[in-house]
Design a protein around this nucleic acid. Structure first.
Lengths: 167, 167
DNA sequence: TATTGTTATACTCTATAACTATA
DNA sequence: TATAGTTATAGAGTATAACAATA
């Protein structure tokens, strides 16, 4: 929703504060837009970017990939088809199960995702750089704490689980 | 990207911290997923939800709507078509310009977006509730400060501009 | 029989280009 | 001529259901 404007009563905009929900919602849109913009520079959609991101340190089967991306396996087939057509990923038959295929990043795909990543990271760091160092550090610490707590609440160990990674 | 795992060296996961970029990226995905999930409960996509959200306090022309949503006018036509077919919005001919149409929320649309909003807000508040009150307040303040600073940096007054609202 | 992956199909979302009806 | 909106068309992304090959 990132819903209505948090249309503050009036007056001192300089010190006004968004309500917590609107703040987090808006922040999520700002960050997604940064990601989208940088991905688009390389003709990547968010979906393609997620795919490449997940493959940076894995070589999963289609099935595992579908679980990692939280998509239906048929959607994953299509996603991989289009990436493969562009030479960004490759399908490799599994040696242990003749039904299965492994999906892996090509050099070209790896290079593309690295470039987009780097630009995106720079965007976020630039935005963070607008805050005084003390605020910046505090924010990072709190965001991290929130994510870890939230993940734990969902029964996920952020630092071990495969699901919490790569979005 | 919400990129690689921030695969910490090892050890004490309890005190480990995500790097700032990954933290914000992951947070944005978590929040978007909450929004998506709640919208889906009412058979709404993110796009439809944004549309309804924007219309909560406006009755724009198609043209204005396209600008508000940052979409091509033809995309907006389709979006409104589908929402209208479901009875969530209505097209009203402009009285001042016979080429133009105004788009407005129906009661049904307003009710739907309110319900989805409420559920989403509850989700975010629940997540925030996992933090101790002091952390929660600090986080809200910092997020707000970051958004205001970032908006200012882009030449936007978060509290006046039409663009910063509703995502 | 169960699982892996693909195909067939359908719908949403988005954009570009061409069109119409006003202005 | 210029603007407001729609239509025609095309492609990405997603899901469900049915299917072939293998386990």
């Amino acid at each position: 929703m990132a819903s209505r404007p948090a249309r503050r009563p009036a007056a001192s905009a300089a010190r006004a504060q968004l309500n917590p929900v609107d703040g987090l919602a808006q922040l999520s849109f700002v960050i997604q837009r940064m990601l989208e913009r940088r991905a688009a520079e390389h003709d990547l959609s968010i979906a393609q970017t997620r795919l490449l991101g997940v493959l940076r340190d894995r070589k999963p089967t289609m099935n595992e990939l579908a679980r990692l991306l939280d998509l239906d396996k048929s959607s994953t087939t299509g996603l991989v088809d289009r990436a493969e057509r562009r030479g960004l990923v490759a399908r490799v038959p599994s040696t242990t199960d003749r039904r299965a295929v492994l999906v892996s990043l090509t050099d070209s795909g790896r290079s593309l995702v690295s470039q987009a990543s780097a630009r995106f990271e720079a965007d976020v760091l630039t935005m963070l750089g607008l805050l005084p160092p003390r605020d910046r550090e505090a924010l990072s610490r709190l965001v991290s704490r929130l994510l870890v707590t939230h993940a734990a609440d969902q029964g996920i160990d952020l630092f071990t689980s495969v699901n919490a990674e790569d979005c």
